[in-house]
Amino acid sequence: MINTSFEESCARVRRIIVDTAFRCGQSAHIGGSLSMVELLNTLFGDVLSHRPHEPQWDGRDIFILSKGHAVLGYLAVLHHFGYFDAEKLATFQTNGSDLIAHPVKKVALGIESSNGSLGQGLAYGMGIALGMRKRKQDRRVYVLLGDGECNEGSVWESAASASEMGVGNLTAIIDENGFRNDGPNATYSNRIALTNIWKAFGWNVINVDGHDHHQILSALQQAKQVADIPTAIVARTVKGKGLSFMENNNDWHHNRITGTVYEECLKALGESTGSELETEGEFRG
């Protein structure tokens, strides 16, 4: 990881997402990867207890990407924070790679869980958090879910259990970008708000702008102060954030970046066509 401002760090992660998607030559889940950049950058940069060069450190906090289809954004952040180099990242979605279209658990790379089927991560994270509590470990578990994923019944079974058992070292972060695979996530509206549902299940709930560093950081810090119940941070985000032609455009839920689109991406990121990001070890498009 290089020493940059938060905004520069997020811009770099978005560039890594675009470069990696272009390099692999295949379709990838781009929109939902871009929407969670600030959430993960804040978590990994300011809150999570972790050691990228000692990924199996026994004292580490655990992060689980439950919306596993957005693995590209997760891998970009792991690379940015030094878990693996650009050469490894460049194997994304190639034959024989550890880095495929969904997370496959490999703690040596910072990947703490396998995830493909939606709705599984919260239960898995709750089990880990309970184990930490039984061992009297001062460690926490963070699970990132999508709002579309919250249509899965298994999410609410886990939410009820975590509240009943008072799993206070568990934090769910909901990337509420308003879309799911097939279009707008109409399940949750002003009448049936996600915030109200999490509250009804007995969670400590905090609403934030999912692209505002200060709001995200404050919420994550507040979650640490609540010991008797789990916390849900409902983060309103923009799908495709940072690339104007992708923002709130569900065509980019899963799509391929061609050479022409790649040039558009660079322009949308505020870079001149063909310019290079001046970072150590970054591969070029």
Results as ranks from 00 to 15, higher is better:
S5H: 09
F6H: 13
S9Y: 03
C10S: 11
R12Q: 07
R12A: 10
D19V: 14
T20M: 13
A21P: 04
G25Y: 12
S27Y: 12
G32Q: 12
S33Y: 06
L34Q: 06
V37M: 14
N41Y: 14
T42Q: 08
T42D: 00
G45N: 06
R51T: 03
Q56W: 06
D58Y: 07
D58M: 09
G59F: 02
G59Y: 02
G59N: 04
F63G: 00
G68E: 00
G68Y: 04
H69Q: 07
Y74C: 02
Y83A: 01
T91Q: 03
T94V: 04
N95P: 03
L99P: 02
I100N: 09
G110Y: 09
G110W: 12
E112F: 12
L122S: 08
A129P: 04
G131R: 14
R135I: 00
R140F: 02
V141E: 01
E149N: 12
E157M: 13
A160Y: 03
S161P: 00
G168E: 00
G168N: 01
F179M: 09
G183D: 02
A186L: 15
A193M: 09
L194N: 06
T195Q: 14
T195W: 08
K199Y: 01
G210C: 07
D212M: 05
Q215N: 07
I216M: 07
L220R: 10
Q222R: 14
V226T: 06
I229M: 13
P230F: 04
R236W: 03
T237C: 13
K239I: 01
K239Q: 09
S244I: 11
N248G: 10
D251C: 11
W252I: 06
W252H: 09
H253C: 11
H254M: 04
N255I: 12
G259V: 01
G259D: 05
Y262P: 05
E263G: 13
E264Q: 15
E271M: 14
G274W: 06
S275A: 15
L277A: 07
E282M: 08
G285Y: 05
